[in-house]
């Protein structure tokens, strides 16, 4: 392992993060506050408890997931797209680093940033509703696993994209709808059977459900299935990344 290289890339990416952290934090924090004002207070007051949890508290895990997914995908995609765009990727390709080292450092840096933002969102939510985390260990596990998994997806996106539009379209057109329809703001158990079945094809359902379980001990699907599906996505994305590097897809001429 070329640990020096991992350290170099990771700290390079983190210094980029530090330069932009202010602006990266502001927008998710503001939207979280807005969600709480609209859903938590204005509408939430009229919504009965779900699974014995007040609506304001119910949406906390979903809100954290919403930011975590969006941030992971956009951080990681930008991190690898930018050197491709400017051409500085030549140095990465000519350096004695393995594909694994490249992925570990880029995905690690992107995941670190989104975990930091996730924690900040959680703290922001704590200003509006009292936070109860039943299983903190599981909570952290889901947080970290999700950040890594979706940073991998972002990495894939950053390699596939051939323009800034695509880089922004995918989170907007795919990640955001999947998160909204993935039970972030409701339990999929309240849906008619048909739509509930459809929802089960949405990967975000399993992430949100497992994450919510770690808070309140209840989820839309069982903990085992949540964890299993999360790991499945992780492995699937890893396989795609391995294929990308094996074929040099969009990286090497």
């Amino acid at each position: 392992m070329n640990f020096q290289a991992i350290r170099a890339i990771y700290s390079f990416e983190m210094s980029r993060t530090r330069r932009t952290l202010g602006q990266s934090i502001i927008s998710p924090v503001i939207s979280t506050v807005l969600y709480f004002i609209v859903f938590g207070s204005a509408i939430g007051g009229r919504i009965p408890e779900i699974d014995g949890v007040s609506y304001g508290a119910f949406i906390v895990p979903g809100l954290v997931m919403l930011s975590l997914l969006g941030q992971s995908v956009s951080n990681a995609s930008f991190g690898i797209y930018f050197p491709r765009f400017t051409g500085t990727i030549y140095e990465l390709l000519s350096a004695p680093v393995s594909y694994l080292e490249i992925v570990v450092s880029y995905v690690g840096a992107a995941a670190t940033k989104s975990i930091v933002i996730g924690v900040i969102i959680l703290a922001t939510a704590g200003l509006f509703v009292p936070l109860h985390i039943l299983h903190p260990g599981w909570m952290i596990l889901f947080l970290v696993l999700t950040a890594i998994t979706f940073s991998l997806l972002g990495f894939i996106l950053g390699i596939w994209a051939d323009g800034f539009e695509k880089l922004q379209m995918v989170p907007l057109l795919i990640i955001t709808p999947l998160t909204f329809l993935g039970g972030s703001f409701y339990s999929i158990n309240i849906l008619p059977p048909f739509w509930k079945t459809v929802s089960l094809f949405n990967p975000v359902v399993y992430l949100v459900s497992g994450f919510r379980w770690s808070f309140y001990g209840v989820g839309d699907v069982s903990l085992g299935i949540s964890l299993g599906m999360t790991l499945l996505f992780l492995v699937a994305f890893l396989a795609i990344v391995a294929w990308i590097f094996k074929t040099g897809y969009r990286i090497k001429a």
């Binding site: 020096q4 290289a5 350290r7 170099a8 890339i9 990465l92 004695p96 680093v97």
Partner: peptide, 8 residues
């Protein structure tokens, strides 16, 4: 310095 680290 980054380049140096990248090359291990």
């Amino acid at each position: 310095s980054f380049s140096r680290g990248l090359f291990g």
